[in-house]
């Protein structure tokens, strides 16, 4: 499932909702992205997340479908916030649940790596020197590129 919202989310409540009564789930992995308080040497006052409504939902759903095709997941969830966020606030949540931990770990990493390079969201940082749009990072591209070939995996060998 995917959600794009201005409101905060409760990580524990989301994990409980996803795994409740699902006893085939043996492991749940959650990634939470937060707003940092510094960019290089400069403190950040806030960050505004903008997105392309319609395409952002479509891309998140497609990225999630790709993860579900590559790994044996029992369930998954992506929540991405938009709007103005201050340091310490949560930006994004990715949860993956599987019978065994390896699939959950790998799929979670894949989801955040692909989200960062494919889903149409942009960050506007506010500092004491004014507001500027964050530039894309080469190491994010490299992280996403790791997943272009499906990893060799043997579901029977997990755990």
């Amino acid at each position: 499932m995917i959600r794009i919202q201005t409101d905060d989310f409760d990580v524990g409540a989301e994990i409980a909702r996803l795994s409740s009564g699902r006893h085939g789930i043996g492991g749940v992995v959650a990634f939470v992205g937060l707003v940092r308080d510094m960019v290089g040497e400069r403190p950040i006052e806030a960050m505004t997340l903008e997105h392309y409504p319609g395409m952002s939902e479509k891309m998140l759903a497609r990225i999630e479908a790709e993860a579900r095709a590559r790994w044996p997941l029992e369930d998954s969830l992506i929540i991405h916030r938009v709007g103005r966020l201050e340091p310490g606030e949560r930006i994004v949540l990715v949860i993956t649940a599987s019978a065994h931990r390896q699939a959950a770990f790998e799929a979670c990493q894949f989801l955040i790596d692909w989200l960062k390079t494919r889903a149409p969201f942009w960050k506007l940082e506010e500092t004491d020197a004014g507001a500027h749009w964050v530039a894309a990072r080469a190491d994010d591209d490299a992280a996403a590129a790791r997943w272009t070939v499906p990893p060799g995996r043997d579901p029977e060998a997990a755990e």
Binding site: G33, L49, H51, Y52, M55, H80, I91, V92, I112, L115, K116, T117, R118, A119, P120, F121, W122, K123, W133, V134, A135, A136, R137, D140
Partner: peptide, 10 residues
């Protein structure tokens, strides 16, 4: 048609 910079979400 949408025009935008490389994405920076997440």
């Amino acid at each position: 048609v949408a025009l935008f910079p490389p994405v920076t979400g997440g």
